[in-house]
């Protein structure tokens, strides 16, 4: 049923969520964290157009 409900050839289920258990590694320093919206570099995922350079933060521990 609903075979053509979504674009099947993407080879993915309609909705299948998973969240791996985070392990603390390095963190941004507080200044960068506030600007980046997260303390964790692994969660820093700004929406960028293709080709725009992704300026990752400096690591601090």
């Amino acid at each position: 049923m609903n075979y053509d409900y979504y674009d099947r050839n993407k080879g993915m289920q309609l909705a299948m969520a998973y969240v791996p258990f985070q392990r603390l590694n390095q963190v941004f320093d507080p200044k960068e964290a506030l600007m980046n919206g997260t303390l964790f570099p692994e969660l820093y995922m700004p929406y960028k157009r293709k080709g725009q350079d992704l300026d990752g933060g400096r690591y601090y521990e």
């Binding site: 507080p30 964290a33 506030l34 997260t38 964790f40």
Partner: peptide, 9 residues
Amino acid sequence: MQYSFALVE
């Protein structure tokens, strides 16, 4: 504010 945000995280 920076440390306050870090503490939230």
